[in-house]
Design a binder for these strands. Structure first.
Lengths: 222, 222
DNA sequence: CCGTCTCTTAAGGTGCCCCTAAGCTGACGC
DNA sequence: GCGTCAGCTTAGGGGCACCTTAAGAGACGG
């Protein structure tokens, strides 16, 4: 289990590295924010232990950058007790947990374990097509990383299409799935929803197969 | 099971000692902070019941000293209702639980039991979402560092939601978890509790997913 | 036994979503 | 090039899910 430790204080860093190594982690120790960003952009870690006061690039900035590229690597923040403001801002920026100075090594190890378990334990299945991503658990959709708001019907319809990429779904099939039982619609409601989806997600995503139905091509944008 | 009681009030201390002894604990009762530090540095206890207003050395100071030497002995803090600030600081300093004056002996005994049990395993991590923090052990919630009082139902509901951030929980799921199979409520009780939570914690925390249920987004507020 | 706190129930209001419908556009066949 | 048809686009009204509020039932402690 490889983790990244970012801490500029020599004494603290040394102690943390020793302790975390003892706890069974493979620890990479860097001293400034820029090095951290560089490492995080090329390598993968099970978690990051991040001090806030860093040379060259602040810890919060590193965190923000990390989350900005949709990297969900668990981040444990080290902060002084009197800097509650930083703590709150860190959590807002997407930190997973924090530990106050002075540190308890056991506590840090325990929290790391919890973080890794939480992050690793449930990989949420995500459906993708081109730049579109759909997360069924969160009922959320993103386009090129940007969140897109869909209504329930729109979401269900897109969900169906993404579960059957590269396969044409007939209008009949779609309506049967969307409208349970007997509330069959006798209008062009389906077309309207397709239209709304295209407005929000781009015209290239859903292809019309004339006389049959609709299809979403798999893989990258065709 | 030996525990340390630190309380300067004669009446209170006497009552607590009697009650806790009755509950099956071996109780050492000390009257001031310095004596407590002295005892804690040489002896081992299954838990500490700590009043905050103490002669010679303040309770919080004792707690800080204890945690400073990486002693993970469970600490239950006794505090007056109007000193919420102390409570929050105590939890930040590593207290495991707190009880408000006036005390209920049964409650204290129960919490002690829970503390000791948990000490053998691992403390539950704090759940966070945005500026909200929930401490399952203490059953406490803070918003931007400020303590927020929740009723039991409200707390349980929030707990469920925070354990599943970024995942939509259906109304059905929530009701099944909140109300043990004996009785499913056939009203909008859930909606009312959601409403109350929003009043206390802000409207942005809990998102309605129409036709499905509720969800609290992890990390920053979208 | 009374006051307080909490939870449920119920009613009324509201905003959003979804269907409908009707006109429009582009494709295909002749 | 024109007719026809499938699908596209737009707008509006109605319904329903959810919100909000208030009050009574129940639990608990004094």
């Amino acid at each position: 289990m490889r983790i990244l430790l970012v801490e500029d204080d020599r004494m603290l860093g040394d102690g943390l590295q020793a302790g975390l190594t003892q706890a069974g982690y493979a620890v990479d120790w860097l001293r400034d924010g820029e090095a951290a960003v560089s490492a995080l952009s090329t390598e993968s870690f099970a978690a990051v232990v991040l001090d806030l006061g860093l040379p060259k690039r602040d810890g919060l900035s590193v965190l923000q950058w990390l989350r900005g590229r949709h990297d969900a690597t668990p981040v444990l923040i080290l902060t002084a007790r009197d800097q509650l403001e930083d703590k709150v801002r860190g959590l807002d920026l997407g930190a997973d947990d924090y530990v106050l100075k002075p540190f308890d090594l056991d506590e840090i190890a325990a929290r790391l374990r919890a973080l890794v378990r939480r992050a690793h334990g449930r990989p949420e299945p995500v459906l993708t097509a081109g730049e579109i991503e759909l997360n069924p658990a969160a009922r959320s959709v993103t386009r090129a990383g940007q969140a897109v708001e869909l209504t329930p019907r729109e979401f269900d319809l897109l969900h169906l299409l993404l579960e059957n990429t590269d396969r044409v779904l007939t209008r009949r099939t779609l309506e049967e799935q969307l409208y349970t039982w007997n509330e069959a619609v006798d209008s062009n409601a389906l077309e309207v929803h397709i239209h709304h989806l295209r407005r929000k997600l781009g015209n290239d995503l859903i292809r019309t197969v004339r006389g049959v139905g609709y299809m979403v091509p798999a893989g990258t944008t065709p």
